[in-house]
């Protein structure tokens, strides 16, 4: 694999800030469109990026998304500062969610975020501790 990114951007994401949810994914989507990336790849990237963005907003105390474009792949790194996921296997189950009712009323909390990321990324890696959650997703071009 080629290890120098053609493009790399870091987006800071604050907890509980619903008004801008989706902004990061939307920006990344626009960039990929300009670069002429295949629409199917753009769509998959947008979905996994949106889900990680939302999870940082809803479930964490804040974090960031690092987007990297390489010649042969896109890498999305999602990193937050906690509280982390104690049971990753359970969290990965379709429909499992600890989202509050308030958040659910806005349409979030379907428990499909992590499963969507796992489904649409070619590679999905997750690590979590009380210090935070790290997700690395790769989509091959």
């Amino acid at each position: 694999m080629i290890n120098i990114p053609i493009k790399s951007d870091t987006y800071i994401i604050n907890a509980n800030d619903f008004s801008v949810a989706g902004k990061v994914s939307s920006d990344i989507k626009k960039d990929l469109k300009k670069l002429g990336i295949h629409p199917k790849i753009i769509r998959r990237t947008a979905i996994v990026c949106y889900e990680s963005e939302i999870n940082i907003i809803i479930h964490s105390i804040g974090g960031k998304i690092v987007f990297e474009l390489y010649e042969d792949r896109i890498v999305i790194n999602s990193e937050d500062r906690g509280p982390g996921i104690s049971d990753i296997e359970l969290a990965m189950k379709e429909g499992y969610s600890t989202a509050t009712n308030e958040v659910r009323e806005l349409g979030f909390g379907a428990g499909m975020g992590l499963p969507n990321m796992n489904r649409w990324a070619d590679e999905f890696r997750i690590e979590s501790s009380s210090k935070g959650t790290l997700i690395k997703m790769t989509i091959f071009l």
């Binding site: 619903f18 008004s19 989706g22 989507k29 629409p39 769509r43 947008a46 949106y50 889900e51 349409g107």
Partner: peptide, 30 residues
């Protein structure tokens, strides 16, 4: 449910929903 719509709705679809929060636009656009 936004995550389900994200995963299942297709491009150029009409999306019918009772959600009115700002976030439906992010999803629809994406």
């Amino acid at each position: 449910l936004l995550s389900i719509v994200m995963g299942k709705a297709k491009e150029k679809n009409v999306w019918i929903t009772i959600q009115t929060h700002l976030n439906i636009l992010a999803v629809a656009e994406l």
